[in-house]
Simulated assay, not measured.
Amino acid sequence: MTEAVPPQVLHATAVAIGGKGLIIKGASGSGKSSLALELISRGAVLIADDRVICTPRSGTDILWLSPPDTIAGRIEARGLGLIAMPWQEAGAAAVVTLDKVENARLPERHETVIAGATLPLFHKVESPAFPAILMACLTGERVAP
Rank of each mutant, 00 (worst) to 15 (best):
S30H: 06
I24H: 00
R78W: 09
M135N: 08
I114H: 01
T112R: 06
L138R: 06
T112V: 14
H110E: 14
A77C: 14
N103H: 11
K25S: 09
E38W: 02
L35R: 04
A44P: 04
L106I: 15
P67N: 06
F122I: 07
M85G: 07
G18W: 04
S127E: 13
A92L: 13
S58N: 12
T13M: 00
R105Y: 06
L121A: 12
T2K: 14
S28E: 12
A44T: 02
A44V: 01
L80I: 15
A14D: 01
G59N: 15
G73N: 05
I24W: 00
S66V: 10
E38M: 04
A115P: 13
A36T: 02
A14I: 01
I17N: 00
I47R: 01
T112S: 08
I62R: 13
V113G: 10
L22S: 05
A72W: 10
A132K: 11
V5D: 05
G140F: 15
G31C: 03
R74E: 11
D49G: 05
I23G: 03
S33W: 02
M1I: 15
S30V: 05
S28W: 07
I53L: 13
R105H: 10
A12Y: 04
L121T: 09
C137M: 15
A115G: 14
D69M: 09
E141P: 03
L134K: 03
M1H: 14
F122V: 09
A136P: 02
S41F: 05
V45Y: 00
D69Q: 08
L46G: 00
S41C: 08
V95K: 05
P67L: 06
P68V: 08
V143R: 08
K32T: 05
R78L: 11
L65I: 02
I133M: 13
R74K: 13
T13P: 00
R51G: 07
L106Q: 09
S34Q: 12
K20H: 13
V9C: 15
S30I: 02
E89C: 14
G116M: 12
L121Y: 11
S30W: 02
T139Q: 14
G73K: 06
E102S: 02
L80D: 10
L65H: 01
T60A: 09
R42Y: 01
A144S: 14
P67F: 05
Q8L: 14
T55D: 13
A84I: 12
H110R: 14
A129M: 09
R74A: 10
A14Q: 01
A132Q: 15
V9E: 15
I83M: 14
A104S: 15
E38K: 07
T112Q: 09
